[in-house]
C-alpha cells in the first residue's frame, strides 16, 4: 500500500478540480448555475407567455374596427363572460366536470381498493400495468375508440339490438338534456368519453391513500361489531377521501380545459375549451379567449384551495 506522506493530497490539481473547489466553497453558486437554464426556459419563456396572455384579457375589442384596442386597460372583456350565452358555457362545463369527477370516483374506487388491499405479487404488477397502460395510451386513440363504439352501426348499438333493448336506448335518447339524435351527438356520449379518458387519473391517488389505511384498523372495526358497510362508511371511506380529492383535481381540471372531446363526440353546444379555441381562432377575439382561459384557472385555484384544506396534497 502506498501511504500518502502529507495530511493533504497535493496531487489533486487541474482546471476541473479548481472549478470543483470553487463550487465546494460556494454551493449557492452551483445551485444558481444549475437553475439558470430551467429558470430561463420555464420562468421566462413559459411564465412570460402566460402572463402576456393574461394581460390580453384586460384589453377589449373595439366594436367599430374589430381590432384589439391596446390603449385602454379595461374589465369590459370580463364583463362579457357574464353574458347569458357565455355564462351558459361556463355552467355547462363545470357541471360536466363535476359529473365526470363523480363517475370517475365511483368507477375508480373498487379498482383502487382491490389493488390496495387484495392483490399481491405478480397480480399487483399486472394490476398496475392494467391501470398505467390505458392511462398513458394515446389520448386521440382513446377518443377514436369511442367514436367506433358509439357509432350508429357500432358495437354498442349492436349489443342493444342483440339484447332486444334498442327500444330502451331510443327511449333514453328521447329524454331531455342527456338525450339527443344518437349517442355520439348527445351529452351522454361526451360524458362517457370524458369519463373514459380521465378516470384512470383517479385510480392511483385513491390507491395510494388506501394503501396507507392500516389493515388492523379495519380489523378493529369488525372486532367492535361493525358490519362491512359500517366499516367502509366510517373507517375506510374517510381515510381514502384525501386520495379521491387528489384524483379529482386531475379529472376536474382536465375536463374543464378539454376542447377536443366535445368537438368530436357531442352536441354543437360549446364547452369552455371550445369557446377559447373559437375566440382565439376564427373570431380573432384574443382578449375574450384570454378571459375565458382565466375561468378554469380561477376555478382550479378555488378547488385546489379547498382540496389543500382537506389534506389532499399529501396523497399526491
Amino acid at each position: 500500500m502506498s501511504a500518502a506522506s502529507s495530511a493533504f493530497l497535493e496531487h489533486r490539481r487541474g482546471p476541473l478540480t479548481g472549478l470543483s473547489d470553487l463550487f465546494w466553497r460556494r454551493p449557492k453558486l452551483l445551485v444558481f448555475l444549475l437553475l439558470v437554464p430551467p429558470l430561463l426556459w420555464l420562468g421566462v419563456i413559459y411564465v412570460g407567455s402566460l402572463v402576456a396572455l393574461l394581460m390580453q384579457s384586460f384589453y377589449a375589442i373595439d366594436e367599430f374596427s374589430g381590432m384589439v384596442d391596446y390603449d385602454v386597460l379595461t374589465l369590459k372583456t370580463y364583463g362579457e363572460l357574464f353574458r347569458p350565452a357565455n355564462l351558459d358555457i361556463i355552467i355547462r362545463t363545470v357541471l360536466m366536470a363535476m359529473a365526470v369527477t363523480l363517475a370517475s370516483a365511483v368507477i375508480a374506487f373498487p379498482i383502487a381498493y382491490m389493488a390496495a388491499r387484495y392483490v399481491r405479487g405478480r397480480w399487483k404488477a399486472m394490476f398496475y400495468l392494467a391501470v398505467m397502460l390505458p392511462l398513458w395510451s394515446s389520448y386521440l386513440v382513446k377518443i377514436y375508440a369511442w367514436k367506433l363504439i358509439l357509432a350508429k352501426e357500432g358495437i354498442l348499438n349492436w349489443i342493444f339490438a342483440q339484447l332486444h333493448l334498442t327500444g330502451a336506448l331510443e327511449a333514453y335518447l328521447g329524454l331531455p338534456v342527456v338525450g339527443g339524435g344518437s349517442l355520439s351527438i348527445s351529452y351522454t356520449g361526451t360524458f362517457l368519453v370524458f369519463v373514459y379518458v380521465w378516470m384512470p387519473y383517479m385510480i392511483l391517488p385513491t390507491q395510494a391513500a388506501l394503501e396507507r389505511v392500516p389493515v388492523n384498523l379495519t380489523d378493529a372495526s369488525s372486532d367492535l361489531g361493525g358490519t362491512p358497510w359500517q366499516t367502509f362508511r366510517h373507517v375506510i371511506f374517510p381515510l381514502a377521501l384525501p386520495g379521491i380529492i387528489a384524483g379529482s383535481i386531475f379529472t376536474f381540471s382536465l375536463t374543464l380545459g378539454d376542447y377536443i372531446i366535445p368537438q368530436i363526440v357531442g352536441s354543437s353546444r360549446l364547452f369552455i375549451g371550445q369557446a377559447v379555441y373559437a375566440h382565439q381562432g376564427t373570431a380573432g377575439n384574443i382578449p375574450l379567449a384570454a378571459a375565458f382561459s382565466v375561468v378554469p384557472i380561477v376555478i382550479m385555484g378555488l378547488y385546489l384551495w379547498m382540496a389543500q384544506r382537506k389534506g389532499a396534497f399529501d396523497a399526491l
Binding site: 500518502a4 502529507s6 495530511a7 493533504f8 493530497l9 489533486r12 470543483s20 473547489d21 465546494w24 466553497r25
Partner: peptide, 14 residues
Amino acid sequence: FGQRAEGVPPYKRN
C-alpha cells in the same frame, strides 16, 4: 498534521 485545513475540501484531505 500542522497544516491549516480551513477551506480545504474533503477530497483533498488525507
